[in-house]
Amino acid sequence: MWANAVKTNSNQSTRQPSENYFKLARWFLVLVAETCLDPSPDAFHVRCSLDAQDRPTQASTPHVRSQMRDTNMITFKLNGQERTFDGDPETPLLWVIRDFEKLTGTKYGCGIAQCGACTVHMDGTTRRSCITPISTVEGSDIITIEGIEGKEADAIHKAWVAIDVPQCGYCQSGQIMSAVALLQTTPKPTDDDIDGAMAGNICRCATYHRIRQAIHNAADTMEG
């Protein structure tokens, strides 16, 4: 009975990675691996820097090498930049974005596409990154809260700030990604449109009242 009341935007599609991507990505991986193995401390990017004493026990370095020979390379665009990933192809996009890319605006909330905290845009539509294996992202264009832009995003951001929508704020990246996608397809949404687009995004602080108002306000400013 209750399942019917919940509308979620899980518009899933899959893509197979192409050979060209493998070649390109493998080349970059060699570059990265070499950089990380350079013993000169200055060569270390802050995210792969290690205390000298820790280096021999560091697990990810040999792992990179062993994966270089036979693993799938996945290449995709993240906020306009080309990226490659050569790890476990089952890894959900969410954890690639967070653990590997260190873009942490996209949140973990449930892991089963029930809460929407992990919502990103994949090729222009909303996607629950927590259930999207990275293997299905090959060649896709991913936009996260850090990279969202355009008149809809501007209007939504301003509307969110103007009436102080967030409380704890943890779900708000996902809420904003869903709201921007809504305005991109429906510039003047009705309350029903808002319900349809936003019911997949849980807010435990229940800021829904203001989310609805902010979407209407954003639509009004876009119009004007």
Partner: peptide, 12 residues
């Protein structure tokens, strides 16, 4: 296993 910027952009 790692991931890296291919191109540095204004968004870095």
């Amino acid at each position: 296993m790692t991931i890296h910027n291919i191109t540095a952009t204004r968004r870095s």
